[in-house]
Lab assay of single mutants.
Amino acid sequence: TTVHVNGVTYHFPNPEEAKKFVDRVVKEAGLTVEVKGNQWDVE
């Protein structure tokens, strides 16, 4: 699973890890998340 955060790419072994990361980032920074298949874009 690939997560893009403001142009930076993070790779995770599974969607659960990616979701935990995204949830944390979104809570801390108040960002928006767009999910496209296995790819997350966070802005």
Rank of each mutant, 00 (worst) to 15 (best):
T9L: 10
N14E: 03
L31V: 12
N14I: 02
H11G: 01
V5D: 01
E43T: 13
D23K: 04
Q39G: 12
A18P: 00
P15F: 13
P13G: 06
K19E: 05
V5F: 14
G30I: 06
N14L: 01
F21L: 01
L31Q: 07
Y10I: 03
V25R: 03
E43F: 14
A18F: 03
A18Y: 02
T9H: 05
E34M: 06
E28G: 09
D23N: 05
Y10R: 01
N14S: 11
T1S: 05
K27C: 13
P13Y: 05
N38F: 06
Y10A: 01
P15S: 11
Y10C: 03
K20F: 04
E16I: 06
T32G: 08
G37D: 13
F12P: 00
A29W: 14
V8Q: 07
T2S: 08
Q39T: 08
N14D: 08
E34F: 03
G37Y: 13
L31M: 12
V5H: 07
T32W: 04
V22C: 12
H4A: 08
D41V: 15
V8Y: 10
E28R: 06
K19V: 04
W40M: 07
V8W: 07
V5Q: 02
D23H: 04
K36C: 15
V8H: 08
D23T: 04
T9E: 07
E17G: 02
H11P: 01
N14V: 01
T9M: 11
V26L: 14
G7F: 02
P13A: 13
V35E: 08
V8T: 06
E43V: 15
D23G: 03
V25C: 15
H11E: 04
G30E: 05
P13F: 06
E43Y: 14
P15E: 13
D41T: 14
V35Y: 13
L31F: 12
K19Y: 06
D23F: 05
P13K: 12
K27L: 11
A29S: 11
N6S: 04
V5G: 00
A29R: 04
D23C: 15
F12Q: 00
L31H: 09
V33C: 14
V42A: 09
K36F: 14
H11L: 05
F12M: 01
V8S: 04
V22E: 02
V22F: 13
V3F: 02
E16H: 06
T2N: 03
G37E: 12
V42L: 09
V26I: 13
V22H: 05
N38P: 13
T1D: 02
E16Y: 11
V42P: 10
A18E: 01
V22A: 05
K36V: 15
K20L: 09
E16C: 11
V35P: 03
E17Y: 02
N14M: 01
G37R: 03
V42I: 10
V22T: 03
V33P: 05
V3D: 00
V25K: 03
K27M: 12
G7L: 01
G7S: 02
K27W: 10
L31E: 07
A18L: 04
E28A: 08
V25N: 03
E16W: 13
P13C: 14
N38M: 05
E17Q: 05
Q39S: 11
E17D: 08
D23I: 05
V3P: 00
V33A: 09
V25I: 14
V26D: 04
V42Y: 08
Y10H: 03
L31G: 13
K19G: 03
A29L: 15
T1A: 07
L31W: 14
Q39V: 13
V22M: 11
H11W: 15
V33G: 09
L31D: 07
Y10Q: 01
V5P: 00
V35R: 03
V25E: 03
E43D: 11
V42N: 10
A29Y: 14
T32Y: 04
V42D: 10
K19W: 11
Q39L: 11
A29K: 06
A18Q: 01
V22Q: 03
E43C: 14
V3I: 07
N38S: 06
T1P: 03
G7T: 01
V3G: 00
E17F: 02
E16D: 09
E34N: 12
D23V: 03
G30M: 07
T32M: 09
T9F: 08
D41L: 15
L31K: 05
E43W: 10
T2G: 01
D41Y: 15
G30S: 06
Q39D: 12
F21E: 00
K27E: 06
E34T: 14
D41C: 15
H4L: 14
E28H: 07
K19F: 06
H11A: 03
E28M: 10
P15N: 10
